[in-house]
Design a protein around this nucleic acid. Structure first.
Lengths: 188, 188
DNA sequence: TGTACATCAGTGAACGCGCGTTCACTGATGTAC
DNA sequence: TGTACATCAGTGAACGCGCGTTCACTGATGTAC
Protein backbone atom coordinates (compact mmCIF):
# COMPACT_ATOMS: atom_id res chain seq x y z
CA UNK A 1 0.00 0.00 0.00
CA UNK A 2 2.88 2.39 -0.60
CA UNK A 3 2.33 5.56 -2.63
CA UNK A 4 5.78 5.21 -4.13
CA UNK A 5 4.32 3.06 -6.86
CA UNK A 6 6.97 2.33 -9.42
CA UNK A 7 6.49 0.66 -12.72
CA UNK A 8 4.50 -2.05 -11.04
CA UNK A 9 1.42 -0.91 -9.25
CA UNK A 10 1.18 -3.67 -6.71
CA UNK A 11 -2.54 -4.20 -6.54
CA UNK A 12 -3.98 -2.68 -9.67
CA UNK A 13 -6.93 -4.99 -9.87
CA UNK A 14 -8.23 -3.89 -6.49
CA UNK A 15 -7.45 -0.26 -7.28
CA UNK A 16 -9.40 -0.49 -10.51
CA UNK A 17 -12.38 -2.01 -8.77
CA UNK A 18 -12.29 0.76 -6.22
CA UNK A 19 -12.07 3.46 -8.87
CA UNK A 20 -14.82 1.82 -10.89
CA UNK A 21 -17.02 1.60 -7.82
CA UNK A 22 -16.55 5.30 -7.12
CA UNK A 23 -17.31 6.16 -10.71
CA UNK A 24 -20.39 3.99 -10.75
CA UNK A 25 -21.84 5.37 -7.54
CA UNK A 26 -21.08 9.01 -8.29
CA UNK A 27 -21.49 9.37 -12.03
CA UNK A 28 -23.58 6.41 -13.04
CA UNK A 29 -22.86 3.49 -15.25
CA UNK A 30 -22.62 5.49 -18.47
CA UNK A 31 -19.54 7.24 -17.07
CA UNK A 32 -17.90 4.00 -16.14
CA UNK A 33 -15.22 3.47 -18.77
CA UNK A 34 -12.05 1.45 -18.65
CA UNK A 35 -10.06 4.54 -19.53
CA UNK A 36 -11.46 6.63 -16.72
CA UNK A 37 -10.96 3.85 -14.20
CA UNK A 38 -7.35 3.56 -15.33
CA UNK A 39 -6.92 7.33 -15.08
CA UNK A 40 -8.19 7.31 -11.51
CA UNK A 41 -5.94 4.43 -10.60
CA UNK A 42 -3.04 6.51 -11.92
CA UNK A 43 -2.12 4.10 -14.62
CA UNK A 44 -2.00 4.10 -18.41
CA UNK A 45 -5.24 3.57 -20.26
CA UNK A 46 -4.62 -0.01 -21.21
CA UNK A 47 -2.96 -1.34 -18.11
CA UNK A 48 -6.41 -2.67 -17.08
CA UNK A 49 -6.16 -5.26 -19.83
CA UNK A 50 -3.65 -7.11 -17.69
CA UNK A 51 -6.46 -7.73 -15.19
CA UNK A 52 -9.71 -7.70 -17.15
CA UNK A 53 -10.07 -9.09 -20.65
CA UNK A 54 -12.55 -6.37 -21.57
CA UNK A 55 -14.90 -3.76 -20.20
CA UNK A 56 -17.68 -6.22 -19.51
CA UNK A 57 -15.38 -8.25 -17.31
CA UNK A 58 -14.78 -5.21 -15.12
CA UNK A 59 -18.52 -4.61 -14.88
CA UNK A 60 -19.08 -8.26 -14.01
CA UNK A 61 -16.46 -8.11 -11.26
CA UNK A 62 -18.08 -4.98 -9.90
CA UNK A 63 -21.50 -6.58 -9.96
CA UNK A 64 -20.17 -9.68 -8.21
CA UNK A 65 -18.56 -7.51 -5.56
CA UNK A 66 -21.89 -5.75 -5.12
CA UNK A 67 -23.71 -9.03 -4.54
CA UNK A 68 -21.15 -9.83 -1.87
CA UNK A 69 -21.83 -6.46 -0.27
CA UNK A 70 -25.54 -7.19 -0.34
CA UNK A 71 -25.02 -10.60 1.25
CA UNK A 72 -23.00 -9.04 4.04
CA UNK A 73 -25.75 -6.48 4.57
CA UNK A 74 -28.39 -9.19 4.74
CA UNK A 75 -26.37 -11.10 7.30
CA UNK A 76 -26.04 -7.97 9.38
CA UNK A 77 -29.78 -7.39 9.04
CA UNK A 78 -30.57 -10.55 10.98
CA UNK A 79 -34.31 -11.20 11.06
CA UNK A 80 -35.01 -7.89 9.32
CA UNK A 81 -33.64 -9.12 6.04
CA UNK A 82 -36.35 -7.56 3.93
CA UNK A 83 -35.66 -4.13 5.35
CA UNK A 84 -31.94 -4.67 4.89
CA UNK A 85 -32.47 -5.57 1.24
CA UNK A 86 -34.44 -2.42 0.57
CA UNK A 87 -31.96 -0.28 2.45
CA UNK A 88 -29.07 -1.68 0.47
CA UNK A 89 -30.80 -0.75 -2.77
CA UNK A 90 -31.53 2.77 -1.58
CA UNK A 91 -27.99 3.29 -0.36
CA UNK A 92 -26.37 1.91 -3.50
CA UNK A 93 -28.85 2.58 -6.28
CA UNK A 94 -26.29 2.41 -9.07
CA UNK A 95 -24.84 -0.85 -7.83
CA UNK A 96 -28.33 -2.25 -7.56
CA UNK A 97 -29.05 -1.30 -11.15
CA UNK A 98 -25.80 -2.81 -12.30
CA UNK A 99 -26.61 -6.06 -10.51
CA UNK A 100 -30.05 -6.34 -12.03
CA UNK A 101 -30.02 -4.12 -15.07
CA UNK A 102 -29.38 -6.90 -17.54
CA UNK A 103 -26.28 -5.18 -18.87
CA UNK A 104 -23.98 -7.89 -17.61
CA UNK A 105 -25.18 -11.36 -18.52
CA UNK A 106 -24.52 -13.49 -15.44
CA UNK A 107 -24.69 -16.55 -17.67
CA UNK A 108 -21.24 -15.82 -19.03
CA UNK A 109 -19.70 -14.68 -15.76
CA UNK A 110 -19.56 -17.57 -13.28
CA UNK A 111 -18.27 -15.47 -10.40
CA UNK A 112 -21.19 -13.11 -10.78
CA UNK A 113 -23.68 -15.93 -10.95
CA UNK A 114 -22.14 -17.51 -7.87
CA UNK A 115 -22.30 -14.36 -5.75
CA UNK A 116 -25.91 -13.83 -6.77
CA UNK A 117 -26.77 -17.36 -5.78
CA UNK A 118 -25.13 -16.90 -2.39
CA UNK A 119 -27.10 -13.79 -1.58
CA UNK A 120 -30.32 -15.56 -2.50
CA UNK A 121 -29.41 -18.53 -0.32
CA UNK A 122 -29.41 -16.24 2.69
CA UNK A 123 -32.95 -15.17 1.97
CA UNK A 124 -34.02 -18.70 1.21
CA UNK A 125 -32.57 -20.14 4.38
CA UNK A 126 -35.00 -18.16 6.52
CA UNK A 127 -37.94 -20.10 5.07
CA UNK A 128 -36.73 -23.59 5.84
CA UNK A 129 -39.55 -24.17 8.31
CA UNK A 130 -42.12 -24.05 5.53
CA UNK A 131 -40.98 -27.39 4.17
CA UNK A 132 -42.04 -28.13 0.61
CA UNK A 133 -43.36 -24.64 0.15
CA UNK A 134 -40.10 -23.03 1.20
CA UNK A 135 -38.92 -22.53 -2.38
CA UNK A 136 -42.04 -20.68 -3.34
CA UNK A 137 -42.20 -18.69 -0.13
CA UNK A 138 -38.59 -17.64 -0.54
CA UNK A 139 -39.19 -16.70 -4.16
CA UNK A 140 -42.21 -14.65 -3.11
CA UNK A 141 -40.25 -12.91 -0.36
CA UNK A 142 -37.38 -12.10 -2.68
CA UNK A 143 -39.78 -10.86 -5.33
CA UNK A 144 -41.54 -8.65 -2.82
CA UNK A 145 -38.47 -6.93 -1.42
CA UNK A 146 -36.81 -6.74 -4.79
CA UNK A 147 -39.81 -5.15 -6.44
CA UNK A 148 -40.29 -2.74 -3.59
CA UNK A 149 -36.67 -1.66 -3.70
CA UNK A 150 -36.70 -1.28 -7.46
CA UNK A 151 -39.93 0.71 -7.60
CA UNK A 152 -38.81 2.98 -4.79
CA UNK A 153 -35.58 3.61 -6.67
CA UNK A 154 -37.50 4.54 -9.78
CA UNK A 155 -39.65 6.98 -7.85
CA UNK A 156 -42.86 5.11 -8.57
CA UNK A 157 -44.02 5.44 -4.98
CA UNK A 158 -44.01 9.18 -4.77
CA UNK A 159 -46.21 8.76 -1.72
CA UNK A 160 -43.26 7.22 0.08
CA UNK A 161 -41.48 10.56 0.30
CA UNK A 162 -44.37 12.16 2.18
CA UNK A 163 -44.72 9.31 4.63
CA UNK A 164 -43.97 10.22 8.21
CA UNK A 165 -40.76 8.38 8.91
CA UNK A 166 -39.76 8.64 5.28
CA UNK A 167 -39.09 5.94 2.77
CA UNK A 168 -37.99 3.41 5.35
CA UNK A 169 -41.29 3.71 7.22
CA UNK A 170 -43.21 3.33 3.99
CA UNK A 171 -41.24 0.22 3.12
CA UNK A 172 -41.88 -1.19 6.56
CA UNK A 173 -45.61 -0.65 6.24
CA UNK A 174 -45.72 -2.22 2.81
CA UNK A 175 -43.78 -5.28 3.93
CA UNK A 176 -46.05 -5.47 6.94
CA UNK A 177 -49.09 -6.01 4.74
CA UNK A 178 -47.81 -9.33 3.52
CA UNK A 179 -48.32 -12.80 4.95
CA UNK A 180 -46.68 -15.84 3.43
CA UNK A 181 -48.98 -18.79 3.89
CA UNK A 182 -48.82 -22.52 3.39
CA UNK A 183 -51.81 -23.40 1.27
CA UNK A 184 -51.53 -21.67 -2.08
CA UNK A 185 -54.40 -19.36 -2.86
CA UNK A 186 -54.72 -16.54 -5.38
CA UNK A 187 -54.31 -13.02 -4.16
CA UNK A 188 -53.57 -10.32 -6.71
CA UNK B 1 -50.05 4.35 -45.58
CA UNK B 2 -48.91 4.56 -49.20
CA UNK B 3 -45.48 3.35 -50.21
CA UNK B 4 -45.19 6.15 -52.70
CA UNK B 5 -43.79 8.36 -49.99
CA UNK B 6 -42.54 11.56 -51.49
CA UNK B 7 -40.52 14.20 -49.82
CA UNK B 8 -42.91 14.17 -46.91
CA UNK B 9 -43.24 10.92 -45.13
CA UNK B 10 -46.72 11.39 -43.78
CA UNK B 11 -46.43 9.80 -40.38
CA UNK B 12 -42.78 9.66 -39.60
CA UNK B 13 -43.20 9.89 -35.87
CA UNK B 14 -45.24 6.71 -35.75
CA UNK B 15 -42.91 5.00 -38.21
CA UNK B 16 -39.91 5.89 -36.05
CA UNK B 17 -41.58 4.53 -32.95
CA UNK B 18 -42.36 1.32 -34.79
CA UNK B 19 -38.82 0.97 -36.06
CA UNK B 20 -37.41 1.77 -32.65
CA UNK B 21 -39.70 -0.78 -31.03
CA UNK B 22 -38.52 -3.47 -33.43
CA UNK B 23 -34.91 -2.56 -32.82
CA UNK B 24 -35.39 -2.58 -29.08
CA UNK B 25 -37.13 -5.94 -28.96
CA UNK B 26 -34.82 -7.67 -31.41
CA UNK B 27 -31.41 -6.20 -30.79
CA UNK B 28 -31.64 -4.67 -27.37
CA UNK B 29 -31.38 -1.14 -26.19
CA UNK B 30 -27.71 -0.72 -27.05
CA UNK B 31 -28.58 -1.12 -30.73
CA UNK B 32 -31.32 1.46 -30.55
CA UNK B 33 -29.85 4.53 -32.21
CA UNK B 34 -31.58 7.45 -33.85
CA UNK B 35 -29.67 6.80 -37.03
CA UNK B 36 -30.71 3.17 -37.29
CA UNK B 37 -34.33 4.02 -36.55
CA UNK B 38 -34.21 6.62 -39.32
CA UNK B 39 -32.61 4.10 -41.66
CA UNK B 40 -35.40 1.62 -41.04
CA UNK B 41 -38.03 4.26 -41.54
CA UNK B 42 -36.41 4.97 -44.92
CA UNK B 43 -35.54 8.51 -44.10
CA UNK B 44 -32.37 10.56 -43.72
CA UNK B 45 -30.45 10.26 -40.48
CA UNK B 46 -31.57 13.53 -39.05
CA UNK B 47 -35.15 13.66 -40.12
CA UNK B 48 -36.03 12.31 -36.64
CA UNK B 49 -35.05 15.66 -35.16
CA UNK B 50 -38.28 17.09 -36.59
CA UNK B 51 -40.14 14.80 -34.18
CA UNK B 52 -37.87 14.17 -31.24
CA UNK B 53 -35.52 16.77 -29.78
CA UNK B 54 -32.92 14.12 -28.99
CA UNK B 55 -32.34 10.43 -28.54
CA UNK B 56 -33.62 10.38 -24.98
CA UNK B 57 -36.94 11.79 -26.14
CA UNK B 58 -37.37 8.85 -28.49
CA UNK B 59 -36.56 6.43 -25.68
CA UNK B 60 -39.02 8.22 -23.42
CA UNK B 61 -41.77 8.00 -26.03
CA UNK B 62 -41.05 4.32 -26.47
CA UNK B 63 -41.16 3.74 -22.73
CA UNK B 64 -44.44 5.64 -22.44
CA UNK B 65 -45.89 3.56 -25.26
CA UNK B 66 -44.74 0.45 -23.41
CA UNK B 67 -46.54 1.50 -20.24
CA UNK B 68 -49.68 1.96 -22.31
CA UNK B 69 -49.21 -1.56 -23.68
CA UNK B 70 -48.82 -2.86 -20.16
CA UNK B 71 -51.97 -1.09 -19.02
CA UNK B 72 -53.91 -2.60 -21.87
CA UNK B 73 -52.57 -6.01 -20.95
CA UNK B 74 -53.59 -5.55 -17.32
CA UNK B 75 -57.09 -4.54 -18.36
CA UNK B 76 -57.35 -7.63 -20.53
CA UNK B 77 -56.08 -9.73 -17.63
CA UNK B 78 -59.13 -8.93 -15.54
CA UNK B 79 -58.80 -10.38 -12.04
CA UNK B 80 -55.57 -12.13 -12.97
CA UNK B 81 -53.66 -8.88 -13.10
CA UNK B 82 -50.60 -10.24 -11.35
CA UNK B 83 -50.21 -13.00 -13.90
CA UNK B 84 -50.79 -10.53 -16.70
CA UNK B 85 -48.05 -8.27 -15.35
CA UNK B 86 -45.52 -11.09 -15.25
CA UNK B 87 -46.52 -12.30 -18.68
CA UNK B 88 -46.09 -8.86 -20.16
CA UNK B 89 -42.57 -8.68 -18.78
CA UNK B 90 -41.67 -12.10 -20.13
CA UNK B 91 -43.10 -11.32 -23.54
CA UNK B 92 -41.43 -7.92 -23.82
CA UNK B 93 -38.28 -8.18 -21.73
CA UNK B 94 -36.51 -5.32 -23.47
CA UNK B 95 -39.46 -2.99 -23.16
CA UNK B 96 -39.74 -3.91 -19.51
CA UNK B 97 -36.09 -3.07 -18.96
CA UNK B 98 -36.48 0.20 -20.78
CA UNK B 99 -39.47 1.11 -18.63
CA UNK B 100 -37.67 0.36 -15.38
CA UNK B 101 -33.99 0.42 -16.19
CA UNK B 102 -33.43 3.95 -14.98
CA UNK B 103 -32.03 5.02 -18.35
CA UNK B 104 -34.87 7.38 -19.02
CA UNK B 105 -35.62 9.65 -16.08
CA UNK B 106 -39.40 9.87 -15.91
CA UNK B 107 -39.03 13.04 -13.89
CA UNK B 108 -38.14 14.98 -17.02
CA UNK B 109 -40.64 13.26 -19.32
CA UNK B 110 -44.21 14.04 -18.23
CA UNK B 111 -45.84 11.74 -20.77
CA UNK B 112 -43.78 8.83 -19.50
CA UNK B 113 -44.58 9.64 -15.90
CA UNK B 114 -48.26 9.89 -16.73
CA UNK B 115 -48.44 6.54 -18.50
CA UNK B 116 -46.63 4.89 -15.61
CA UNK B 117 -49.09 6.37 -13.18
CA UNK B 118 -52.03 5.12 -15.20
CA UNK B 119 -50.79 1.57 -15.27
CA UNK B 120 -50.30 1.65 -11.51
CA UNK B 121 -53.79 3.02 -11.00
CA UNK B 122 -55.18 -0.10 -12.56
CA UNK B 123 -53.38 -2.26 -10.04
CA UNK B 124 -54.31 0.04 -7.21
CA UNK B 125 -57.99 0.13 -8.06
CA UNK B 126 -58.35 -3.56 -7.31
CA UNK B 127 -57.55 -2.94 -3.64
CA UNK B 128 -60.16 -0.32 -2.92
CA UNK B 129 -62.02 -2.63 -0.54
CA UNK B 130 -59.12 -2.55 1.92
CA UNK B 131 -59.87 1.05 2.85
CA UNK B 132 -57.04 2.88 4.54
CA UNK B 133 -54.64 0.05 3.91
CA UNK B 134 -55.34 0.02 0.20
CA UNK B 135 -52.30 2.12 -0.65
CA UNK B 136 -49.98 -0.22 1.16
CA UNK B 137 -51.66 -3.34 -0.13
CA UNK B 138 -51.46 -2.06 -3.69
CA UNK B 139 -47.82 -1.13 -3.23
CA UNK B 140 -47.12 -4.60 -1.88
CA UNK B 141 -48.93 -6.24 -4.77
CA UNK B 142 -47.10 -4.17 -7.33
CA UNK B 143 -43.78 -4.85 -5.63
CA UNK B 144 -44.47 -8.56 -5.60
CA UNK B 145 -45.38 -8.95 -9.26
CA UNK B 146 -42.74 -6.50 -10.36
CA UNK B 147 -39.98 -8.24 -8.42
CA UNK B 148 -41.10 -11.64 -9.63
CA UNK B 149 -41.14 -10.50 -13.24
CA UNK B 150 -37.77 -8.83 -12.95
CA UNK B 151 -36.05 -11.74 -11.24
CA UNK B 152 -37.49 -14.23 -13.72
CA UNK B 153 -36.18 -12.06 -16.54
CA UNK B 154 -32.73 -12.05 -15.03
CA UNK B 155 -32.73 -15.81 -14.71
CA UNK B 156 -32.46 -15.76 -10.94
CA UNK B 157 -35.13 -18.43 -10.57
CA UNK B 158 -33.41 -21.12 -12.55
CA UNK B 159 -35.81 -23.51 -10.84
CA UNK B 160 -38.66 -21.91 -12.77
CA UNK B 161 -37.50 -23.46 -16.03
CA UNK B 162 -37.74 -26.97 -14.66
CA UNK B 163 -41.16 -26.46 -13.16
CA UNK B 164 -43.90 -28.57 -14.72
CA UNK B 165 -46.00 -26.05 -16.54
CA UNK B 166 -42.99 -23.83 -17.09
CA UNK B 167 -42.34 -20.35 -15.94
CA UNK B 168 -46.00 -19.39 -15.86
CA UNK B 169 -46.81 -22.21 -13.46
CA UNK B 170 -43.90 -21.23 -11.25
CA UNK B 171 -45.11 -17.64 -11.19
CA UNK B 172 -48.61 -18.76 -10.32
CA UNK B 173 -47.37 -20.85 -7.41
CA UNK B 174 -45.23 -18.03 -6.09
CA UNK B 175 -48.07 -15.53 -6.28
CA UNK B 176 -50.30 -18.09 -4.61
CA UNK B 177 -48.13 -18.10 -1.50
CA UNK B 178 -49.00 -14.54 -0.70
CA UNK B 179 -51.85 -13.12 1.37
CA UNK B 180 -52.38 -9.41 1.75
CA UNK B 181 -53.82 -8.72 5.17
CA UNK B 182 -55.28 -5.81 7.02
CA UNK B 183 -53.39 -5.58 10.28
CA UNK B 184 -49.74 -4.88 9.54
CA UNK B 185 -47.39 -7.50 10.88
CA UNK B 186 -43.80 -8.33 9.97
CA UNK B 187 -43.16 -11.20 7.65
CA UNK B 188 -39.78 -11.35 5.93
C1' DT C 1 -58.67 30.32 -59.87
C1' DG C 2 -54.15 32.17 -59.24
C1' DT C 3 -50.41 34.02 -56.91
C1' DA C 4 -47.19 35.21 -52.82
C1' DC C 5 -45.54 33.80 -48.95
C1' DA C 6 -44.85 31.57 -44.36
C1' DT C 7 -44.20 27.29 -42.42
C1' DC C 8 -42.98 22.83 -42.00
C1' DA C 9 -40.59 18.32 -42.95
C1' DG C 10 -37.35 16.65 -45.12
C1' DT C 11 -31.91 16.35 -47.15
C1' DG C 12 -26.74 15.85 -47.14
C1' DA C 13 -22.28 17.18 -45.59
C1' DA C 14 -19.55 17.72 -41.71
C1' DC C 15 -17.72 17.68 -36.86
C1' DG C 16 -16.22 16.15 -32.56
C1' DC C 17 -16.44 12.73 -29.35
C1' DG C 18 -14.37 9.45 -26.10
C1' DC C 19 -14.31 5.09 -26.25
C1' DG C 20 -12.61 0.04 -26.67
C1' DT C 21 -9.13 -2.34 -28.43
C1' DT C 22 -4.65 -3.77 -30.75
C1' DC C 23 0.22 -3.38 -31.47
C1' DA C 24 4.97 -3.37 -30.53
C1' DC C 25 7.54 -1.97 -26.84
C1' DT C 26 10.12 -1.72 -22.09
C1' DG C 27 10.95 -1.89 -17.19
C1' DA C 28 10.65 -4.87 -13.07
C1' DT C 29 10.59 -9.28 -10.79
C1' DG C 30 11.60 -14.09 -9.72
C1' DT C 31 14.14 -18.19 -10.43
C1' DA C 32 17.55 -21.80 -12.05
C1' DC C 33 22.14 -22.74 -12.06
C1' DT D 1 26.85 -14.06 -4.83
C1' DG D 2 26.32 -13.41 -9.72
C1' DT D 3 24.48 -14.06 -14.05
C1' DA D 4 20.98 -15.47 -17.85
C1' DC D 5 16.69 -15.73 -18.92
C1' DA D 6 11.55 -16.27 -18.79
C1' DT D 7 7.63 -14.03 -17.32
C1' DC D 8 4.77 -10.54 -16.09
C1' DA D 9 2.80 -5.76 -15.64
C1' DG D 10 3.18 -1.85 -17.23
C1' DT D 11 3.71 2.13 -21.45
C1' DG D 12 2.47 5.07 -25.56
C1' DA D 13 0.95 5.55 -30.19
C1' DA D 14 -2.56 4.49 -33.25
C1' DC D 15 -7.02 2.90 -35.33
C1' DG D 16 -11.71 2.49 -36.32
C1' DC D 17 -16.09 3.06 -34.74
C1' DG D 18 -20.86 4.68 -35.17
C1' DC D 19 -22.92 7.79 -32.94
C1' DG D 20 -25.42 12.35 -31.66
C1' DT D 21 -25.78 16.67 -33.15
C1' DT D 22 -25.38 21.10 -35.91
C1' DC D 23 -25.52 23.64 -40.15
C1' DA D 24 -27.24 25.53 -44.28
C1' DC D 25 -30.15 23.90 -47.62
C1' DT D 26 -34.54 22.57 -50.46
C1' DG D 27 -38.92 20.55 -51.64
C1' DA D 28 -43.82 20.27 -50.27
C1' DT D 29 -47.94 22.07 -48.14
C1' DG D 30 -51.43 25.32 -46.56
C1' DT D 31 -53.39 29.77 -46.42
C1' DA D 32 -54.54 34.82 -47.22
C1' DC D 33 -55.93 37.76 -50.56
Amino acid sequence: MSTSAGYHHGDLRAALLRAAGDLLENQGIAALSLREAARRAGVSHNAPYRHFPDREALLAALAAESFAMLAERLRAGGREMGQAYVEFALEHPQRFRLMFGGLVPSATHPELREQGRRAYELLESSFKELGDDARFAAAAAWSLVHGLAHLLLDGHFSQAQGESGGTAAFASKVLGMVRLARAPQRSA
